[in-house]
């Protein structure tokens, strides 16, 4: 995802360092929120099905494009279109992913390498079909609300600390909403996994698919559901971000890469680890880009991930062997 931190940073040249850092942190939190949703989707699929979904970024992109379609079809007040998109886009993407699971992944027996190859195929099919239908343009979705909120900063004046409002230090009500909404959805996923029958079935399958089958768990349906849920989470993340960014057929690459990074750093298949890593990567991405060029930051992050896999495959926060 194009990092909102840099877009904002461009407007505030000349801002002092403290406020600048706070702004970068806020923007980073938005990135982290969306990234956490997307990466948890990837992590669920990896954890339960033991496969890597390379098309995950395209499900994200599809969520954004469908959000634009749904929102523009509904018209009326921006909120109507946005709510409709937030419901419909993840549902549609989830259904499509479940369909892909049944028609393609099931037929390669979830063999890890062949799954990677077919999901690469899926990546190109989705991306190029969107190019053919939606076109190469980038299109925004209007946020349901978008009040600008100026933020204060503390300065040591002659009479002790004093609040002031630096020019350019602001966020929007919508960005705060993104952070809140992502937190709510992540909590819901947590509850689903820990305190529902579906979650029990998912966890049983995660531990041992063959054993689950013996105990009468419909593993095939569990896999289709998981693949759909993972894709839907990515799509939901995209719906949240399109009012800030725009929907574009090539927007899936960065979320895929960043989700990979997050899932690997967080420990393959571990949900809490994934969320912590998403916060770390999202926030640091905003902050690092204050000091480094974004490209250099990406090079370092990519190499870090590769070396984590080589030398510490259980992730930086994990303890069990992957």
């Amino acid at each position: 995802m194009r990092l909102p931190g840099r877009a904002a940073a461009g407007n505030v040249a000349g801002m002092e360092f403290g406020p600048y850092l706070m702004l970068a942190t806020l923007e980073g939190a938005v990135t982290a929120a969306v990234l956490a949703l997307t990466a948890v989707g990837l992590s669920l699929v990896f954890g339960i099905m033991r496969v890597v979904n390379v098309a995950h970024g395209e499900f994200f992109m599809l969520g954004a494009v469908l959000a634009w379609w749904v929102a523009s079809w509904f018209g009326g007040h921006a909120a109507i279109g946005f709510v409709a998109a937030a419901v419909l886009a993840p549902l549609l993407v989830g259904a499509l992913a479940a369909l892909a699971d049944v028609t393609v992944l099931k037929r390669v027996d979830y063999d890890p390498e062949r799954t990677i190859v077919v999901t690469i195929g899926l990546l190109y099919v989705i991306q190029q079909v969107v190019l053919m239908t939606y076109g190469p343009e980038a299109r925004p979705v209007e946020p349901p609300f978008n009040a600008r909120l100026a933020l204060p900063w503390v300065e040591w004046g002659e009479s002790g600390p004093a609040l002031y409002w630096p020019w350019g230090l602001s966020t929007t009500s919508y960005k705060l909403f993104v952070i809140g909404a992502a937190a709510v959805v992540l909590a819901a996923v947590w509850l689903l996994m820990r305190h529902t029958r579906i979650g029990l079935v998912l966890r049983a399958t995660q531990m041992d698919g063959e054993m689950a089958q013996v105990f009468g768990i419909p593993v095939e349906r569990v896999y289709a559901f998981t693949f759909g849920l993972g894709a839907a989470l990515a799509a939901l993340g995209a719906v949240l971000i399109v009012p800030i960014q725009q929907a574009h057929y090539l927007m899936g690459g960065d979320p895929l890469l960043l989700s990979f990074i997050v899932v690997i750093i967080g420990g393959l298949g571990s949900l809490p680890g994934t969320v912590v890593a998403a916060l770390l990567i999202g926030l640091s991405d905003g902050i690092i880009s204050v000091f480094f060029s974004p490209t250099l930051a990406k090079i370092l992050a990519t190499l870090l991930v590769a070396l984590v896999l080589v030398f510490r495959p259980q992730g930086l926060f994990g303890t069990r062997a992957a």
Binding site: V52, P112, E113, I116, L257, F260, I264, S293, T295, L296, K298, I299, T302, L303, V305, A306, L307, L309, V310, F311, P313, A322
Partner: peptide
């Protein structure tokens, strides 16, 4: 020498990441 310390899916991802780092280096 680095990537071969991993096996299976990790090998795929490590090679992908190395290549991505090289690509970004070309851009940088």
């Amino acid at each position: 020498a680095l990537a071969l310390r991993t096996v299976g899916v990790a090998f795929l991802i490590v090679t992908l990441m190395f290549a991505q780092a090289v690509y970004l280096t070309v851009l940088y």
